[in-house]
Design a protein around this nucleic acid. Structure first.
Length: 658
RNA sequence: GCCGCCUUAGCUCAGUUGGUAGAGCGACGCUCUCGUAAAGCGUAGGUCUGGGGUUCGAAUCCCCAAGGUGGCUCCA
């Protein structure tokens, strides 16, 4: 046996002895904990025996692979704890996920928060016992015998070798080898075991920081038709500090919640009388919405789009022509009957834009023809999926459709992609990646169009994505039924990702609507249609902006840009003179002339997250000046009025954050 | 749609084991006229989400519904 790496670890002598007995490797003295090893490129437990010539690299707990191993091991400990407390709980699967892990159980009664607390306590006990993970290769029959009481695990054994089984289950897939993992006590007796592909940390003491976070329901193998299991979510980290940092991040995210801030800043609300998923924008939210609309309308005009308008309802037949019915009947509100003629609320704008395209003959000279509008569409989202502004039932889409000759499609997509990325950047979202959503090749019946058409369209989108230089990840199965799409996933200020803009390549709808243009040789040709939405949904975009900025919008988006606070009532007039100068420059100003103390007014303005507070008293008036208090609390006193106006106007015009 | 949890004044929340409601903020009024995050006093405001039931008696226990929420599934 030989190894080309010195595997070391920082811990006490007792643990060192135990680790050496466990792993056969000296883990003493390393700065970071080693939880597994890569042997000839494949990840294994540290207990794996090494042969001559094996190339061994350590896997540290801090790197993604090491974290996954740590969390997967934590999932085992959680499951062991649950089964110790609930012997009747049947095991589902328990994979690592972002920030932690989960484990599914079939139980008679759902778990309660108290159950979680008790299980967490039990986990601590298991971790303290430093139970060793032992890998055991077993045959089918032996595995079935050992797991006779675990119906879901038996089902997984039956799935062994099914290459399409990629649901994150912990069964060994396709390798032809089943493994069990035992948790061994110090006396080598088996405390618990699970069907699992591994690898795991050497013993449970390697899981220094963990917690059970919540419980929810989940369908077995992700299918609504299957049993509903109870899913316990947990988190696990290489150190207590990192666990604390994670909890801190969660708390920060909660503070930014757009549902909470929307009420605090008086931006929007969701009146119960109106119905679920139907937001109303208050004057403050209305300003943000209008600024966004003005911006994107102007930008579309600059990019060669024509502004069009369409009604909210249509005869139902239109959506059969487009193919939305019956494909997405569930997503649309039920029909309204008008003397036997069914009408529908529109769930998309494209069919109506097609009617505009068709309204007269089109020449190849006109292409690309670009239509744009804010179209509010209505989707009958299932009650359980609604979420603040990010999942609503009335969705305002900045919807655009480019009709072009097939050979123009690639250029048009590149043009749109550039447009979209510039827009995100103007709204402060500089951190994003692309997602290429393609057809689900196992369920081609859910998508219309030929294999060749799909291949061509996908290829064009892929080339455009590659050429943009932006990172692009694959999303197999995520395409619209009529064609593949590129979507932009933006990361907000605390690293969460949101699907924003989409660009979709559509070869189906032009055919279904019989769209054509006259080519230079006089023949009729079918255009390609590129759907794109830059904000995606205005509602969602506003929700994301609120969370991204935590309500502290850059001045150009702030509902109120300046609040004026007089030191005393006698300075109201002086501040009003300054306000007039600002209003003339288009600035949104409010003078707080209420009967309150100035300290209170400053506090109120600060809590509303206004970017500029202007304060004026006798000293300012005598000097023809005004005093700034910025959002971060810093002051700039006695600024000449002209300079103050210039500073504010400049920040707004340059879309600066302050 | 499925499973769990939640719903008390405009907002944030108290409300012991069932004995028919409280605070702070906000709003309004009066006093105070003040230099960088909360002046003082007072007033109004609630079928305890809605509907059934158990009970002498329900904010509290049970059932149903609506809305919200954490997930699952879905997301053109």
């Amino acid at each position: 046996m030989s190894s080309n790496v010195v595997v070391r670890r920082d811990h006490n002598e007792e643990q060192r002895e135990f680790d050496q007995a466990t792993t056969g490797l000296d883990l003493f003295g390393a700065e970071r904990t080693i939880v597994a090893m890569r042997v000839n490129g494949e990840t294994h437990d540290l207990s794996r025996e090494l042969g001559d010539g094996d190339v061994v690299e350590p896997v540290f707990n801090g790197e993604p692979e090491g974290l996954a191993i740590l969390r997967h091991s934590a999932a085992h400990v959680a499951a062991q704890a649950i089964q110790a407390l609930h012997p009747d709980a049947k095991l589902g699967i328990g994979p690592p996920i972002v920030d932690g892990f989960y484990y599914d159980f079939a139980v008679e009664e759902p778990f309660t928060p108290e159950d979680l607390k008790a299980a967490e306590k039990k986990m601590t006990q298991i971790v303290k016992e430093r139970q060793r993970f032992r890998r055991r290769v077993v045959g089918d029959d032996e595995a079935r015998e050992q797991l006779a009481d675990e119906p879901y695990k038996l089902e997984l054994i039956g799935l062994k070798g099914n290459a399409s089984d990629d649901d994150g289950s912990s069964v060994e897939v396709g390798a032809g080898e089943l493994t069990l993992y035992d948790n061994l006590r110090r006396d080598a007796s088996v405390a618990w075991f699970d069907l699992c592909r591994g690898p795991h940390v050497p013993h449970t003491g390697y899981i220094p920081a963990y917690g059970l976070t919540r419980v929810s329901a989940a369908y077995w193998r992700g299918d609504q038709k299957n049993d509903q299991l109870q899913r316990i979510y947990g988190t696990a980290w290489p150190s207590k500090d990192e666990l604390a940092a994670y909890k801190h991040r969660l708390a920060e995210a909660a503070k930014r919640d757009h549902r909470k801030l929307g009420a605090e800043l008086d931006l929007y609300s969701f009146p119960e009388e109106l119905g679920a998923g139907l937001p109303v924008f208050h004057p403050n939210g209305g300003v943000i919405k209008r600024v966004m609309e003005d911006y994107v309308r102007q930008r579309h005009l600059e990019e060669g789009f024509s502004y069009v308008g369409t009604p909210h309802i249509s005869k139902e037949g239109l959506f059969y022509t487009s193919g939305h019915l019956p494909y997405f009947a569930d997503g649309m509100f039920p029909p309204m009957d008008d003397d036997g003629q069914p009408y529908r609320l529109k769930a998309m704008n494209c069919p109506i834009h097609n009617l505009i395209f068709k309204s007269r003959g089109r020449s190849y000279r006109e292409l690309p023809i670009r239509f744009f509008e804010f179209g509010t569409v209505y989707r009958n989202e299932k009650s359980g999926v609604l979420q603040g502004l990010t999942r609503v039932r009335s969705i305002t889409v900045d919807d655009s459709h480019s009709y072009c000759a097939p050979e123009q499609a690639a250029d048009e997509i590149k043009h749109l992609l550039k447009f979209v990325l510039g827009l995100l950047s103007d709204f402060g979202l500089d951190d994003y990646y692309l997602e290429l959503s393609t057809r689900d090749e196992d369920r081609v019946d859910k998508f219309i169009g030929s294999d060749e058409e799909w291949a061509t369209a996908t290829q064009i989108l892929r080339e455009c994505a590659d050429e943009s230089g932006v990172e692009c990840v694959a999303d197999p199965g995520g395409a619209a039924y009529y064609g593949p799409k590129i979507s932009v996933q933006a990361r907000d200020a605390i690293g969460r990702t949101w699907q924003m803009s989409t660009i979709q390549y559509d070869f189906n709808m032009p055919a279904r609507f019989g769209l054509h243009y006259t080519a230079s040789d006089g023949s009729h040709q079918q255009p390609v249609m590129i759907h794109s939405a830059k904000f995606g949904s205005i509602e969602r975009f506003i929700g994301v902006l609120v969370e991204h900025y935590a309500g502290a919008f850059p001045p150009w988006l702030s509902p109120v840009q300046v609040v004026g606070v007089p030191v005393a009532g006698e300075f109201n007039d002086y501040l009003n003179e300054i306000a007039t100068l600002l209003v003339e420059r288009g600035v949104r100003v409010q003078i707080d002339d209420s009967d309150e103390r100035m300290q209170k007014k400053i506090r109120t303005a600060t809590k509303s997250k206004v970017p500029f507070i202007l304060i004026a008293g006798g000293e300012d008036r005598d000097a023809g000046a005004v005093s700034f208090r910025y959002r971060d609390g810093t002051q700039n006193n006695g600024v000449p009025i002209d300079d103050a106006v210039a500073e504010i106007v400049s920040a707004i015009e340059n879309r600066q954050q302050v």
